[in-house]
Design a protein around this nucleic acid. Sequence first.
RNA 1: GUGGUUGUAGCUCAGUCGGUUAGAGCACCAGAUUGUGAUUCUGGGGGUCGUGGGUUCGAGCCCCAUCUUCCACCCCA
Length: 457
Amino acid sequence: MSKEKPSIPKGTRDFGPQVVVKRNYIFSTIRKTFEKFGYQPLETPAMENLSVLTGKYGEEGDQLIFKILNSGDYLTKTTATDYEAGSKNLLRKISEKALRYDLTVPFARFVVMNRNEISFPFKRYQIQPVWRADRPQRGRYREFYQCDADVVGTRSLLCEAEIVLMMDEVLSNLGITDFTIKINHRGILAGIAEAIGQKGREAEICVAIDKLDKIGLEGVQKELLERGITAESISALEPILNIAGDNTSILNALTEILKDSEEGQRGLSQIQEVFAYLKNFQIKNANVSLDIALARGLSYYTGCIFEVKVNNANMGSISGGGRYDNLTGMFGLPDVSGVGFSFGVDRIYDVMEELNLFPASGQTITKLLIINFDKASEQYSLPLLQQFRQGNIATELYPEAAKLKKQMTYADQKKIPFVLLVGSEEMQTGILQLKNMQTGEQQALRAEEIISILQQQ
RNA sequence: GUGGUUGUAGCUCAGUCGGUUAGAGCACCAGAUUGUGAUUCUGGGGGUCGUGGGUUCGAGCCCCAUCUUCCACCCCA
């Protein structure tokens, strides 16, 4: 018998009861908002065919996909030449399935496969785990949940505006108040590249300027130089990166800079339209800010892009998204435009823990514990137990006649707010002792009174 | 994937130059208290020092490997 110490894979976690309760609070807050905005639920399998996923996230992304080994004796279907051809070639022979990497690509696959049943515009939300073979760090896990909401089949920028509203509503409802929704547009980024004489190279430029926050202007310039951008272009970029002020003044400055770029004009007018929509809505807490240094990695974005940063917490973005014009094109269905975004629950959890935002009241499940004195009191309590539950009060009867101290400790640790004492006196009179565990106060009451008191809690 | 970092009781951490029996606080269990938890007092249980090798008379401490943690890249929720 080996006494192997059990363990879980790197970057994965168990969630104990207390944690699950808090996570469910976040999930239900998000779900409520998604549904309020008319999004419908969707679930897809944990695993996809590998061919569905490869090539959708760039070469880097492909390496981060968890592949699933074929079942059976997978080696019998390979030859020595496959082996010699290298791991990339061998992979195709021994793995044909993989764990999903995000929720957007499986959604695109679903849309294509069900295009005849779906009526467009199709709004769906999806809350499921995804897996990435990344190296774990703070706020970075190998298994984590995404909460996506996407709408496909419309180009209306109302959807973009509503994404801002949903981000604002969810985070505000969770008690997060100091956060910034950064917004930018791929067209603006393309226009900037054009304006500094580097048309078509915006991908490289974006990767560099996305780091402006982190490495500063000089760092960006150095990186651009290393990427082979000319010094003239870099100095032309400097005043653009230095544009500051409120959204209106940034837009004004950009209008001048991008006046010769068709792509830039498209980006500007769309951003302006989104802002115009937003003027008709009330924003609760979000600081919506046009940020030309926001680029985002995923290459499939073509229009507006979003990212949310909590200002007083040490955490990367907790939500992000954007518009993609051709996601379903990869699966043979062109010209379906979509826009979507995602909340990272695990990061939101960490932020809320850091900022102490979980309400204490929401963390209890059982409302009432009936103390078990002896066989007679247990017998007497059984109908009571059911009566309380029928009154929709989460109640448990301690399953054995343990010492009072042990039962009280149990209630205390499980954060059960009320305890009911049913001893010999109480059984005779029918007047029961209800103890409030927070205040320590005790009241003598009939069962019906207890139900109506607890129902109001 | 690259470079670094961490691991000692359930948790947070001490542990001197390599030296004999590895400590503290919190938590846990029992008693003080046979109908009252969270506060107080008393006592108690708990460790293959991440794992596997090596150096040494002797290793928690030094060396190698491996796993894990955290951090910086890359990238990203």
